[in-house]
Simulated scan of single mutants.
Amino acid sequence: MTVRVLIADDSSLQRSGWRMVLESQPDLEIVGEAGDGARVLAIVRREPTDVVLMDVHMPRVNGLVASERILTDAAVRELGAPPRIVLATALELDDHLAEAARAGVFAVIHKDTDPESLFDIVRAAASAVDGRAD
């Protein structure tokens, strides 16, 4: 199964790093990149996406607000099950866990998560989409 991933961070360097790491895996496909949450929503409305790997802190629309919008958006649902959201932060995880849970986020991780753990989280999130298994 190929996992379709959208990367979102206001730092182009962070997006490039995630892209490079994730593209090293044959089963992970990057379907797009965004620098803010508004752009994320626009992309997932037209591009089937399994997992959104997104920074919590972005301009215009932050990752938490974008998560809520993605998971409740009718246009996104027309493409199938909404993507699972993995939020990333450079700050303390505890600062975002309650809000993330309320927003329906699959997981919150540190931005410096090692590649193997990132692969595992992205794959776990994808397997949770619409109840499908690896």
Results as ranks from 00 to 15, higher is better:
Met1Asn: 15
Met1His: 15
Thr2Ile: 15
Thr2Phe: 07
Val3Ile: 15
Arg4Trp: 04
Arg4Asp: 14
Leu6Lys: 04
Ile7Ser: 06
Ala8Asn: 06
Asp9His: 08
Asp10Pro: 10
Ser11Met: 11
Ser12Asn: 13
Leu13Gln: 12
Gln14Ser: 13
Ser16Tyr: 00
Gly17Pro: 03
Trp18His: 11
Trp18Ser: 08
Arg19Val: 05
Met20Pro: 06
Val21Pro: 01
Val21Glu: 01
Leu22Thr: 03
Leu22Tyr: 01
Ser24Gln: 13
Gln25Gly: 03
Gln25Asp: 15
Asp27His: 14
Asp27Gly: 09
Ile30Gln: 02
Val31Gln: 04
Glu33Tyr: 05
Ala34Pro: 05
Ala34Gly: 05
Asp36Arg: 00
Gly37Phe: 09
Gly37Arg: 00
Gly37Ile: 00
Arg39Thr: 15
Leu41Asn: 05
Ala42Gly: 13
Ile43Gly: 10
Ile43Gln: 02
Ile43Thr: 12
Ile43Pro: 12
Val44Ser: 09
Val44Met: 05
Arg45Lys: 14
Arg45Phe: 07
Pro48Leu: 10
Val51Phe: 06
Val52Glu: 03
Met54Ser: 15
Asp55Met: 09
Asp55Arg: 00
Met58Asp: 01
Met58Arg: 00
Pro59Asn: 05
Arg60Thr: 12
Arg60Asn: 11
Asn62Leu: 02
Val65Tyr: 01
Ser67Val: 02
Ser67Thr: 13
Ile70Val: 15
Ile70Ala: 08
Leu71Pro: 14
Thr72Glu: 14
Asp73Trp: 12
Ala74Glu: 15
Ala75Gly: 05
Arg77Tyr: 09
Arg77Glu: 04
Pro82Ser: 06
Ile85Arg: 10
Val86Thr: 02
Leu87Lys: 04
Leu87Trp: 04
Ala88Asn: 00
Ala88Gln: 12
Thr89Val: 04
Ala90Gly: 15
Leu91Trp: 08
Glu92Phe: 00
Glu92Pro: 00
Asp94Ile: 02
Asp94Ser: 13
Asp95Gly: 07
Leu97Pro: 04
Ala98His: 11
Arg102Met: 10
Arg102Asp: 14
Ala103Glu: 13
Ala103Lys: 13
Gly104Ile: 02
Phe106Val: 02
Ala107Asn: 08
Ala107Thr: 12
Ala107Cys: 04
Val108Glu: 05
Val108Ala: 03
Ile109Gly: 11
Ile109Pro: 08
Lys111Gly: 03
Lys111Tyr: 00
Asp112Cys: 08
Asp112Lys: 12
Thr113Val: 15
Pro115Gln: 09
Ser117Phe: 06
Leu118Glu: 03
Arg123Ser: 06
Arg123Thr: 07
Ala125Lys: 08
Ala125His: 03
Ala125Trp: 02
Ala126Ile: 02
Ala126Asp: 06
Ser127His: 11
Ser127Gly: 13
Ala128Leu: 05
Ala128Asn: 08
Val129Asn: 06
Asp130Arg: 11
Gly131His: 02
Arg132Cys: 12
Arg132Tyr: 14
Ala133Ser: 14
Asp134His: 12
